[in-house]
Simulated scan of single mutants.
Amino acid sequence: MRAVSRIKLVAGLLCASVAVCAGASPDPGPPIATQPQAQASVLLLGTSGGPLARADRSGIATLLIIGGKTYLIDAGEGVVHQLGRAGMQAPAAPLVFLTHLHDDHYVGLTGLASFSYTLRAPRLDIYGPAGTADLVRGVIQTMEPSARIRTAEQGLKQRPADFAVAHEYSAGTIFDDGNVRVSALVNSHYDFPADSPGTANRSYSLRFDAPGRSIVFTGDTGPSAALAGFAKGADVLVSEMASHADREAVPPYVRPHMDREHLSPLEVGKLAAAAGVKTVILTHIGVTGQADVDDIRSQFGGRIVVGSDMLRTQF
């Protein structure tokens, strides 16, 4: 499905419908290798991780703009508001890629889906790990009361169930529209005992490859040698980080989780150096300081960008 770069709003428009193309696959377009080098940028819509509200950060969500199309990676709390701050509306993000199914990475999805539906977006495709279909069914159920009213008001023919489409993925190539090819790697964010029912859950890192451009999103992860290989040679690594202050702020019983299933500044530097990336962009962060940057710099000689909401980086 072609990405919607912008939407024209008619003054005074309060109610709208959605054109649906249920079951259609993204238009592959020409082969990636035949296209000129893509223009690309990363817009950090939200950079906060976890369930705690922060006055200075919205929930984790990143917009990749590449080859004239937009791709949303994770949909944390406040994503629609942050799109508005960027001069966009919800339909500007027709393709969503969820790295895993912790709530701080998807709670903004309901607003994104419902407002996109109301504003006549053709469809919303949501790619995520096993369990995403259940999540999308819940989103659709939440959309239904408003949709029934708008159907009565506007005579809409399509239903939310035809608009929001779930695509569950596993490791390997998960998407290719001719503009970008997206690959997924199981990372080390979850650490369940072998006999735990939680072992069915997976957390992924994602790599987006376009003509002459590549970008890797770690998602939430602990240290991982496989991830360094997965990110090898990428232009940009958008990496989570548990800063020194973030680690100290959590209760002592949470710190082992922070150490095993998130990246310390030192581990971010090791990962970036092993992968040979050009730029690291830090996100999923709280309070960062010079000591964090110094730890990364002790391992990595490339560009370091400390993320903040609405920060745009071109590459």
Rank of each mutant, 00 (worst) to 15 (best):
A225Q: 14
D191R: 13
Q158M: 07
V136C: 04
P223R: 11
S170I: 11
Q154R: 15
H189S: 04
A184C: 11
R202C: 08
V250T: 05
R137H: 13
T142I: 04
A226W: 05
G233E: 06
R159D: 10
P193M: 09
T142P: 01
P193E: 12
S146F: 12
S224G: 04
D220P: 03
I215L: 15
R207M: 06
P251Y: 09
D220Q: 13
K232G: 00
A152C: 04
H167Q: 11
T151Q: 14
T173I: 13
S183Q: 13
A200G: 13
A147I: 02
D246A: 15
V238F: 01
D162F: 00
L237Q: 01
G155Y: 08
E240T: 13
Q158L: 05
D220R: 02
H167V: 14
H244S: 07
P211M: 06
D209Q: 14
Y169D: 03
A166Q: 07
V136S: 01
A234E: 00
F175N: 00
L206D: 02
A226G: 10
S183H: 07
V254W: 12
V139R: 04
I149R: 12
P223K: 09
S239F: 09
K232D: 01
A249K: 00
S196W: 08
V180D: 06
S196D: 15
K232E: 10
V186L: 10
G212S: 06
A225F: 03
H244G: 08
S170T: 15
A161D: 14
S146Q: 11
R207K: 15
N201F: 13
A171D: 11
D195G: 04
F208D: 00
P251I: 09
G172F: 10
R202P: 03
V216F: 07
R159A: 12
S243P: 07
D176L: 05
A166W: 06
V238S: 01
R207G: 07
